[in-house]
């Protein structure tokens, strides 16, 4: 699958799941749309104004450390983020991304990118912008299958648990 014409938004510094969505909101709301209104409200108060359809966040540090809250991913998806590129990820967050159909790509591109758009080819494991093609380590086929199915629970539902 190719994710193309992704709108680039850069963020700098280590990002915790508390930064993405403060904990108390997930105790109040179960609808990602309600959570999306509060994404990054403490760390980067006006950042979500830059999130238009098919946004990719490009980070220069570890993204998604801390809590296991899947709402950190579901709220970003509801805020129009489709992919995240970072040099490293909090591992529970990384897994949550693929489980919900968010592409999380390990690559250190922050200082290379000056463009406004890029594309991610999941099958060929590379990122394209301008005339450049930057490879990333191939993802386990398990993650790609889950992503292509539209998320873990769809994947399980469709396969009638036969994959487990």
């Amino acid at each position: 699958m190719i994710l193309s014409n992704l709108n680039i938004v850069k963020v700098s510094g280590i990002i915790s799941t508390d930064d993405i969505i403060p904990a108390h909101y997930k105790h109040k709301f179960t609808e990602p749309k309600e959570l999306a209104a509060h994404v990054f409200e403490n760390k980067f108060p006006n950042l979500t104004k830059k999130f238009i359809k098919n946004t990719v966040i490009v980070s220069d540090a570890t993204f998604g450390i801390g809590s296991s809250r899947e709402q950190a991913v579901s709220s970003l998806l509801a805020a129009h983020v489709a992919a995240i590129i970072a040099p490293s990820f909090g591992r529970i967050f990384f897994r949550n991304c693929w489980n919900l159909g968010m592409a999380a790509i390990e690559a250190d591109l922050y200082s290379l990118i000056v463009q406004k758009e890029l594309c991610i080819d999941l099958d060929k494991s590379h990122i394209g912008f301008s005339n450049k093609v930057i490879p990333f380590q191939a993802l386990p086929s398990k993650l790609i299958n889950v992503f292509n199915a539209g998320g873990l629970l769809k994947y399980i539902k469709d396969s009638s648990l036969s994959t487990y």
Partner: peptide
């Protein structure tokens, strides 16, 4: 909950995961 790793004090493989992973485990 990410601090499920506390179970490592008992030498349990104790893993914090997100809601979808936990639902999948609860079902299967």
């Amino acid at each position: 909950d990410s601090h499920t790793c506390t179970g490592g004090v008992m030498q349990s493989l104790a893993l914090g995961m997100g809601a979808s992973d936990v639902v999948a485990a609860m079902v299967s």
